[in-house]
Amino acid sequence: MWTLQDAKNRFSAVVDAAMAGQPQQVTRRGKPAVVVLSVAEYDRMRQAAADRRGSFLQHLLEFPGLDADPRPLARPRDVDF
Rank of each mutant, 00 (worst) to 15 (best):
M1H: 07
W2A: 01
W2R: 03
W2M: 03
W2C: 02
T3R: 05
L4N: 09
L4T: 13
Q5Y: 15
D6G: 03
A7L: 02
A7I: 01
K8S: 07
K8P: 04
K8C: 13
K8V: 09
N9H: 10
R10T: 07
R10G: 06
F11A: 04
F11Q: 03
F11N: 06
S12L: 13
S12R: 15
A13R: 04
A13H: 10
V14Y: 00
V14I: 03
V15K: 02
D16M: 10
D16A: 13
D16P: 03
A17I: 01
A18N: 00
A18H: 00
A18K: 00
M19N: 09
A20L: 06
G21E: 02
G21L: 01
Q22C: 01
Q22G: 01
P23H: 03
Q24N: 02
V26Q: 01
V26N: 01
V26H: 01
V26C: 00
T27K: 05
T27Y: 05
R28W: 15
R28S: 14
R29F: 12
R29Q: 15
G30R: 04
K31V: 14
K31Y: 08
P32L: 06
P32N: 07
P32Q: 04
A33N: 10
A33V: 07
V34E: 04
V34R: 04
V35C: 08
V35F: 08
V36P: 00
V36D: 00
V39H: 11
V39D: 12
V39F: 09
V39N: 06
A40T: 11
E41N: 06
Y42G: 00
Y42E: 01
D43E: 15
D43Y: 09
D43N: 13
R44Q: 05
M45K: 09
M45R: 10
R46I: 11
Q47T: 01
Q47D: 00
Q47M: 02
A48F: 02
A48V: 04
A49S: 02
A49I: 00
A50W: 03
A50Q: 08
A50T: 03
D51C: 04
D51M: 04
R53Q: 09
G54E: 02
G54D: 02
F56H: 15
H59N: 12
H59T: 14
L60R: 15
L60P: 07
L61E: 12
L61Y: 13
E62Y: 05
E62V: 09
F63Y: 12
F63D: 15
F63T: 13
G65N: 05
G65M: 06
L66K: 12
L66W: 12
D67R: 14
D67P: 08
A68N: 13
D69F: 13
P70F: 07
P70E: 10
P70D: 10
P70R: 10
R71F: 14
R71S: 14
P72A: 08
A74H: 14
R75P: 07
P76L: 14
P76D: 11
R77M: 15
R77S: 09
D78E: 15
D78I: 15
D78P: 09
D78L: 15
V79Y: 15
V79M: 11
D80Y: 15
